[in-house]
Design a protein around this nucleic acid. Structure first.
Lengths: 180, 180
DNA sequence: GCCGTCATGTAAATAGTTACATGATTAA
DNA sequence: TTAATCATGTAACTATTTACATGACGGC
């Protein structure tokens, strides 16, 4: 079985929900997977094309009524099988996240402690905003998708985001105390 | 002032320590920044070349004694100024980390709960190993670099890694309880 | 008439990994 | 003598973002 990159599998997965167009895939991503997977149109459209070429999806152009040129994509059996196969493969390696804040902090001895304090304060604010976003997304899922079986899994991923973000906020507070 | 990518600044920063060759930069990275910044030789050598071209570093070829072809790089004043300038710039945006485990979990309804349990158990093991690695690196810094002023900052970044990893392990335990 | 949203797509640039190629030294 | 480590570097490939180009619809 041919293998694809994770971004392709993410799109394949989203096509199992009721998102069918490139545009709505992007919207769905921004709303629900935003905290651990982002994607640009520059990748979505070429990937959809590839999925059709490889028989993993079929496209129906709904250019008739009203708005022109809306392409709707539907998973084929082969597409669903490819998705399921990928999900069941063990993770080969968990890549380390890149963190610019830590990179700057690592070389913190080359700037004043005041600057380092600012760096961490800003980061903490960003993390607090992120945490709030996760809670908003969580509420959105609870209200709009509570009947779907997928929802439980979506909430698990959000819980991850919240816990990890909270830990990072705690680290900011502790580290600030040490520098000040 | 010309701007570079973060990987270039990371190399610039490492050149302020006593790492002077491409090879030792890679080693240092793998030992100390591994948890938030990774880099391959395919980027190190071309970047070092660029630094010299732009006058941020100078190279001395020590091809005389013994081992041939060892290039040693030293930051220029311009290089140090460029590094300091970058450190002091605020972070424009904190990119979300990509997480393949969460991506698979997100689509977990397409596989059996047993498979999902395996996914999380494996992930937890990986995280526990990672946590242990961080503690080992921490001990290494405390023993080998305790006199350096940099060491405090290095330890801060490790503390971050440990806290966030610990939060992720807690999430694994909690989520496994919910699925089982 | 203009702005926001819906909607699709490409080209160029940037970033990064992997595989390959080379060869010396050192310790078992 | 053979494997590990030291050491540098390039080419090809893959991944991803950003900027650009286009245009219709609906509400104000």
């Amino acid at each position: 079985m041919k293998s694809y990159n994770n971004t392709t599998y993410a799109i394949l997965g989203i096509l199992t929900t009721d998102c069918t167009s490139g545009y709505s895939i992007k919207q769905f991503m921004d709303q629900s997977l935003n905290h651990f997977w982002k994607i640009s149109y520059g990748q979505i459209y070429p990937t959809l094309k590839l999925l059709v070429e490889d028989g993993l999806a079929e496209v129906k152009s709904a250019s008739t009524s009203g708005r022109a040129d809306k392409n709707e994509y539907f998973l084929t059996e082969k597409g669903l099988a490819t998705l399921k196969n990928w999900i069941e493969q063990p993770i080969d390696q968990v890549p380390a996240e890149r963190n610019e804040v830590l990179l700057k902090l690592f070389f913190g001895s080359h700037q004043s402690p005041e600057r380092t304090v600012s760096l961490l304060e800003e980061y903490q604010k960003t993390l607090e905003a992120r945490h709030a976003t996760y809670e908003a997304i969580e509420q959105g899922i609870r209200h709009n998708h509570h009947e779907e079986q997928d929802a439980m899994y979506w909430l698990f991923t959000l819980d991850y985001g919240k816990r990890v973000t909270q830990a990072a906020i705690g680290w900011c507070e502790y580290t600030l105390k040490n520098i000040r």
